[in-house]
Every structure is written in structure tokens, then in C-alpha cells.
Design a protein around this nucleic acid. Sequence first.
DNA 1: CGCAGTCTTGAATCTCCTCAAAAGGCGTGG
DNA 2: CCACGCCTTTTGAGGAGATTCAAGACTGCG
Lengths: 230, 230
Amino acid sequence: MLDSSINGADAPPSPVVLSLSESRYFRKSESRVVAAGSLLFVEGLQRGRNAKIADGSVCLYQQTADGGRRILDILGPGHFVGPYLTDLADCNVMALTRTRLVALDPRDEAARMAAAMRRMLSRAQSHALLLRRNSVSERVASGLLDLAGQFCGGGVFEDEEDVTFTLHMTRADLADWLGLTLTSVSRGLNAFKRAGLIAFDHPKVITICDRAGLEALASGEAGPTRKRLP
Amino acid sequence: MLDSSINGADAPPSPVVLSLSESRYFRKSESRVVAAGSLLFVEGLQRGRNAKIADGSVCLYQQTADGGRRILDILGPGHFVGPYLTDLADCNVMALTRTRLVALDPRDEAARMAAAMRRMLSRAQSHALLLRRNSVSERVASGLLDLAGQFCGGGVFEDEEDVTFTLHMTRADLADWLGLTLTSVSRGLNAFKRAGLIAFDHPKVITICDRAGLEALASGEAGPTRKRLP
DNA sequence: CGCAGTCTTGAATCTCCTCAAAAGGCGTGG
DNA sequence: CCACGCCTTTTGAGGAGATTCAAGACTGCG
């Protein structure tokens, strides 16, 4: 699913496995392009360097015993990856597309990592809250808004114009992240499309047309189909 | 729900709201008993002290706009509470029973908080993984095992003997935490009881009889009722 | 062009939720 | 001490929504 999902114009034939602990690949103040589908960190790797995502997209996942993958989070530019994340709960990080990482200044690495940890904790709690709600619409809408906020080009995401971004993942990955099935995600996206909330011709290029409507669905306002606590 | 759920033998008539930022209530190397249902931190309180739970039970929750509560986590002895948690995502901490807190030695507070943050991030990710699985059995089994590990008396939880612990929360709180409804939790618990996995006469005192069986259900092995990725 | 993987869509099943009512626990007050 | 009321818990019947199974369209690539 995740492997070979993106078609880089000049991507190397085999994915480049890049371990940040190998300094020849990654030195201070050096940036390096990582091919799509490549593992940034191999499982159990203790040593390594923390780095900031400059461009591209990365997913934080967990390998299960039966060979399946559990996507915990999708991280775009501005997020930090590295041992501070992967050391904890035997998580791995994988690039979903061509991703450029930049090293951190060792002088303020500690402070950056503390802030990144707080940010990731907040994201994990928000995601847990999202998964608590059972509705497909809420989950898909929330996921789209999260991705739009991360990949909407400049990062402003303020004006009322429609924002377009590319999904660096398949429907199956999206379903994995949102705790749904492939078919449910597809149905949800197409329902939003029919309702005029979003638009897409190519399945991977999504345009958000009615952001307010999506936010209403994401917060469970319009149509609390199922349970809601008083 | 959360309020006045526990009947302390000599609990004060009205819950004691205890803010750790008030040094007269909480000074270094001083421990204090907190009555059930009392708020440890009021919403938005920025200042305060981090502390370790010595005894009792505490829940980390989020207040929603419509007045509802969303329980993010249940924390027992050994966990740390304080601004490091509540500052992040407008979370609150509330005692579920008589809880004793102890202050931290300021010399190693920073290291303790970093470790506590990692631990909470790991827990949040695990909980998100749990909520991704839709089955009632998996969620209830996982929740019981988590609570048993936290409140099983000594903390060993290794021997094959049955372990008994008290639920410091109602079925509704459990359902809130696990992303289910009250009735589903009750059904799940009674199904486990009928199956001989657990036992309880009093609804709040649970005995785990077949831990291996619970773990099998928690991991989704026995009876993947719904979706499972290949 | 054909193939493999991805995406869409349909129909049937099944789980969980909603609504509802009854039983049990707990503290209060007579 | 027992009755009463409040809250919690249990259990039933019904229905809505998601999943499962399955087949067909689309994209990208060799």
C-alpha cells in the first residue's frame, strides 16, 4: 500500500533506506531528499538524529505482529521526526512522497524536541478524540481538514478561497489512519463531492470548496448520526 | 456522573476544589488527600505544580463546548499530573476517588516531566490504536487490562492468580473513555462475566479470572468481529 | 496493449446504538 | 430499622450505519 504509491519523475528504482544514524547520509546543516516509500528509520533503531520536515509528507506507523500497519499520524512540513518519536512505542516513520529533511541546530535541539513532544501528544489526544466518534463523515472531514492545514501550500489557510492539496496516500492508508475501511472512506469522499463540499478529478488531488461545511461535519454538529453524550 | 460517584466514609459534604498553585494547600514534600470528585486543576489555570500520584485515581478529560466531558485517560499511582499535562490541550484533571499526591523534588523535576511526557504520548497513541478497533470486546478487554495493571494492588501483576481491583468510575465514565455507550460497556462486562473471563458481584469490584483470554480479545485475536487489515 | 494496483459502487449482513423499562445499590429521613 | 428517592446498572427490542463481499471502472506503467 504505502510502498511505491507515488510516482516521482526521477525516483530511484529501489527505495533508498536512509538511516539518520549514518552520518554520511545526514550531517549537520545538510538537507537530503528522501525517495517515496523509503523508511526513514528502521524498527528498533536507537541511535539517530532528530530532523525537521522541510518538504514532503511522512507517516508515523506501527508494525503489528501479523504484518499489518497501523498509521498513527500523518506529518507534513514543519513537524519533527527522529528518535524522540520512534524510540517510544516501537513506531516507525516512513516517507509517503519525496521528502526533504533538514538537520537541527544542536544548540536548541533539546527545546525543539520538548515542544515537538508536546505537539505530538496534543495531536495524539486529538486523534483519539476523533476516533471516539464513530461517524464516517466526522472522521473523513476531520482528516481532510487536518491534511489541508498541513499541505495547503503556503500554510496560511485563512482566506476564503478554495484550497487544493495532494493526498500523498491511498484510500487504504487514509482508512487506516482514520480507523475506517477503504470503502467507507471512498464513500465518504464521494458523498462530500456530491454535496459540493470538496472536489476532485484525480483521486489524489483534493480541493476543499466548503471549508465551513466540513468543519461543521468534523465537529459533529450537522447530523450527530449516532451517540452523543448529554 | 463523575461527581459524587464515590462514597468516602468521611468525605467532606462538598467537594474540595484544590488548586495546586495555592501553596497553602500544597507545599514541597507535603502530601495531601484529595476528596473524590474534586478538581485538581481548574480550567485554564496556567501556574501550578507537577506532582506524582501516590494513591488513588485520576482522570484526564476535556470539557466540550456543549458541557460534555471527554475522558482522555485514567491515571493511577505512579503517574504524574500537573501543568505539563493540562497546559497543552486545555485538559483538566479530576480525582475519581480519594487521591494522595506528593510533590516532586525540584532538582529532578525536569527529567521526570520529560519522561512523563513520553509516557503520556505513548499512552495516547495506544489509546488511539485501541479506539481504531471498533469491537466492543476489544475495547472493554483492553480497558480492563489497563486498569488492572494500574490498580492491581502491588503492581506486580505477574503471577497467575486472579487479580481484583476496584473501578473508581461508573460505567458511563468507562464508556466515555473507551468511546462506547453505557449500555455497550455493561453488555460487554456481563458477557465477559458469563464467559468466565472476569467476575464481579459489586459492579465496581472486578476480578480478572482469565487474563490470557482477555488479552486475546484485547489484541483482536479471538473473534475479529469486524474489519481487519490483511 | 495488457496488467496490476487503485478507486468506485451495489447489495446483504451484522454490530452497535437508540429508546425504553426494570432491577439493584446507596444515602437520607422518618 | 425500614421506606423512600436518586443514581447506577442491567436487559430487551428495534433500527441506523458501517462493514463485508463482490464486481466493475479507472489510472499508471511496462
